[in-house]
Write a protein that binds this DNA or RNA. Structure first.
Lengths: 350, 350
DNA sequence: CCGGGCTGGTAATTCGTATAACTCGTCCCC
DNA sequence: GGGGACGAGTTATACGAATTACCAGCCCGG
């Protein structure tokens, strides 16, 4: 019979006393230590008593001896709050658990003091490593204290180049999105970006670069009039799609650099009485679960592989191979839905 | 000068040796223990050496002595993944941090074996308490092992009545939503629910009960033809809104029991050429951040106070006042946007 | 009849910190 | 000048588990 109410815990000494053996015997039996021999009778008794008393190991005593705890720190700025990035935690936690580790998570909300304090606390708990995650892809400065422990930068790149980083392959994503539209037969393909293509935001820069490369590979000259900076919100998608479609030479397809932007475009096109994908084809980016599958028609978009990135971050931590400063890029797979079709009348000859 | 690369850590003994004092002195000085007197010179030296060697306390040694760790366990089914419930973690973590505690989080994804194993691990780490959180409001069975530690059920109710629970006030929310429409002058108010109003889902049951109560208080007889069960997805909102508005006596307003359902209704109304709120008023539920503010017009809806609920869960844990089995209900505030207006022609006299 | 090997265990120590109990001076006051 | 009070520290121990070194019987062979 277990004793539910027993706070303060049963120790190995309690088990040893009740079983009439020494604490060492209990430890050796319960851990099934190699190279030791105990009578079956003793083993049976120890196990029975341990179960009976509801013995549970004290992890702190173990860590104190062994030096490293079964925990990994996860520090994020807004990761838990960001609607689509919960997966990044889920992936990290799943991989950690496979290795028998728990995740100690902190959301700093951008507060540097809180960040520093939580890192200190995590280190005092001897975490096996720290994942330093960012809500959106950028180049960031990692706190020095992380040099004391295996650390990985997730969904961003470390400016100092000291830590391995994991980030999405933005350029390839922009390329794939554009290529999808080219393959469908489009030639006038616009892009509504989520920021300045020459700015600081790797997503805006990379996705645009991929867009340009795809066009050039197809022998097309990127028309600067077809690129709009946007702002990452649906208002940017709405306004720019409206402007593009009412302009002198409207595109037959639009690549929106995120799904929110695409949603704005949907609303603008609806207002203009244009149908998707019949009149205009659309490709998004992010595969935002609460949005992309539910638009009518479903939005063809690129997925940010957050689950895999989270997993990989922990894996790098565990591997510990000092791959200093290398950034690993993750490809964004195309998620096909129903917002792309052939253009109404092909403007090119084939 | 700190020693960045020094894994394995500086201990109090190292500091003591370097400062030429005993380990006890280091402990007493660094913890500023009450009732002890040391010379300023000694204090200064200890602090200086500790800083110099980069001393950091070993939390495990402390816990081993003191019995309770500065950590709280947070076990959720899909909480981190659910798009809108990340706030529940954020709130819990914020409150925990104010008390100097870290959060040990696990997403079980509904896996009971993983759940049991992580609870065992958490208990072996001597967590100060456990928050047992659910993605959606329901009545659930709490693992027995949680009886060994302070525990709180979050966003659900404990069937056994052993643990304090925290849940949203669904009935009051349904009432407020309906009242808002009544106050605007509506008399034919439909409801598209997110499930069976006599079923197991507290949200569906409670929100419906509030709807009925508001109507009755206004002297109206709830028309069963105006209530639709729905399914919580936008398809339920789309189909039911279409049916309601093309029926014999269409409502002038619809209360959708969640925002996704409301979104479906938006699309149905758009298809019918009806404008919101001019032709039909709409109220949602959930205040889903990635949706409600971005619909055109912005959706008036009720907010689930996840941040506060998360905070309160940890607070109850900390208070530890044995409020056995009591459920604390949190009111859902109305978030006013632009989807409610007076009916086109009032069907009642005033 | 004695040594060696095997069986079945135990004693003692370690990890790093906190704290109760104690020691050794020195000063002060009667 | 003797004793109490205080100042400034130190010593020793406990927390719970893991592990190394050891030990007591017993059996067997030469």
């Amino acid at each position: 019979m277990t004793r539910p109410g027993s706070r303060s815990g049963t120790t190995m000494n309690d088990v040893a006393a009740a079983a009439g053996v020494s604490q060492a015997t209990v430890s050796l039996v319960l851990n099934d230590a190699a190279g030791t021999r105990f009578s079956d009778e003793t083993r049976r008794k120890v196990h029975a008593v341990a179960l009976d008393l509801g013995y549970r190991t004290n992890a702190h005593a173990k860590v104190l001896r062994d030096g490293v705890a079964g925990m990994i720190g996860f520090v994020g700025d807004f990761v838990a709050t960001a609607p689509f990035a919960g997966k990044i935690i889920e992936g990290a936690q799943a991989r950690a658990w496979e290795a028998g580790l728990l995740l100690l998570t902190v959301n700093t909300g951008g507060d540097k003091a809180l960040e520093a304090a939580s890192l200190e606390t995590m280190l005092s708990y001897k975490v096996a490593g720290v994942v330093y995650a960012a809500m959106y892809h950028r180049v960031l400065d990692v706190p020095d204290v992380l040099a004391e422990v295996p650390a990985v930068v997730l969904n961003s790149r470390d400016r100092s180049g000291r830590f391995p980083s994991i980030a999405p392959q933005e350029e390839l994503g922009g390329y794939a999105a554009t290529k999808r539209l080219l393959d469908a037969g489009h030639r006038r393909i616009a892009m509504v970006n989520i920021g300045d293509p020459d700015g600081e935001l790797p997503a805006a820069v990379g996705r645009h670069a991929g867009y340009v490369r795809a066009l050039e590979e197809a022998g097309l000259n990127p028309d600067s009039g077809l690129h709009r900076a946007g702002d990452g919100h649906e208002s940017g998608g709405f306004d720019n799609a409206l402007a593009l479609m009412t302009g002198p030479q409207p595109p037959t397809a639009i690549f929106c650099a995120n799904d929110r932007t695409a949603w704005g475009a949907y609303q603008a096109l609806a207002q203009l009485g244009l149908s998707i994908p019949h009149d205009v084809s659309l490709v998004g980016f992010d595969n935002q679960e609460t949005l992309a599958p539910h638009l009518r028609p479903g939005l063809t978009t690129l997925e940010l592989p957050f689950l895999e990135m989270g997993r990989r971050a922990v894996e790098l931590l565990l591997a510990g191979t000092d791959r200093n400063g290398r950034t690993e890029y993750f490809e964004c797979p195309l998620v096909e839905r129903h917002s792309v079709a052939a253009p109404l009348k092909s403007t090119s000859s084939y």
